[in-house]
Design a protein around this nucleic acid. Sequence first.
DNA 1: ATATTTGTTAACCAAATGGTTAAACTATAT
DNA 2: ATATAGTTTAACCATTTGGTTAACAAATAT
Lengths: 203, 203
Amino acid sequence: MARKKDENTEALILEAAKTVFQAKGMDGARMQEIADKAGINKAMLHYYYRNKKLLFEAVFNNAFSLLAPQLKAILNDDSPIEEKVRNFTSDYISFIIDYPYIPNFIIQELNRNPDFILKLKDNPSFPNIDKFKKQVDEEVKQGILRPIRAEQLFINIMALNVFPFVAKPLLKAFTNTGEEAYHQLLEVRKTEVADFIIHSIKT
Amino acid sequence: MARKKDENTEALILEAAKTVFQAKGMDGARMQEIADKAGINKAMLHYYYRNKKLLFEAVFNNAFSLLAPQLKAILNDDSPIEEKVRNFTSDYISFIIDYPYIPNFIIQELNRNPDFILKLKDNPSFPNIDKFKKQVDEEVKQGILRPIRAEQLFINIMALNVFPFVAKPLLKAFTNTGEEAYHQLLEVRKTEVADFIIHSIKT
DNA sequence: ATATTTGTTAACCAAATGGTTAAACTATAT
DNA sequence: ATATAGTTTAACCATTTGGTTAACAAATAT
């Protein structure tokens, strides 16, 4: 028998924990299920991560650290707003198709545990809107964009890109589409969402 | 002592259950906490609602039955798309400011329990997109609207209106706004979101 | 008045759950 | 070879949790 050793088990646990936590949330997840999925003894979870909360935080930070760079792309990049909107929309939807659980997971757990975000904001790599704000204000002043507050534009961009994933079951029901057709709708959005936004804000 | 009697307790339980379930979700909610909040014995919960799942479903259906009429307003009404978008945006944001937990609660639990929606769709009062679809197609054909699929427009409308509430903690952090300032942003959206959409789809 | 149905409570219960412990196993250092 | 430090397991534990029960109180029907 004799498992390969240290580093491996830890990663195995994290991977299993990710699956279970993202599917069932902090409260719905069971330590035993995580252990089973990782194919190890339950005591190992505590050996490597002390307790459920810490294991959960490891998973959460992991997920957030995947999401953050996506957002920085639109907030910190130098290209004009229109270009950034187009790139972000396409990139983000591709990204989420690969990691479909992430946005819902983060939003959900952040709602459940609001002071959680304080810890995140401390992190210097937390996305910051300042640069985006200056850019929007500047393009508005130059008459490239209709007057709009950067915060509102940012919310709109996020909403149009993220919501279809977060509310997928509901939207599938309302639009009467099956899995396949819905995925098709999302594929189309890679370009259409950008068009929708640009049409609205460009003078 | 002698509590006022029957009908009352049942409503008391539902109200308490609503608060707890919407704040903590199905898994995070505790029957004891609901009983405490309702000021009654835990056994009463089972007397009136048999078990946790049924109590939860009562709360869920209750929440959904508040949301559904809002959606029907935009789907089934006869006025032109532009007018419907303006009315819906304003009405919906007002509605949610009164019931801030509802969208997140519904989306969350629907993600956790996808076959849950099947039961909802059976209900004849479940919102249906068909009429909206015909209307959009018609206005596109008449040249009133740019070409857009009704499903995509519907998703966009929902996204722009609902997402700011669902992702509130995250968006507050990204936009660096406190409770007061964020509420202000939402207030502004009552009209701005409609403008944003109309600009984008009108020819 | 009295029996019966309905509402309410305190005490209880079995199962599940997060977490611990002590012993065994493995690899590495001496 | 042997001590040492790190890894893994089975068994165990205290607490929590959803749910039940039996007795009691209050209406309502007879």
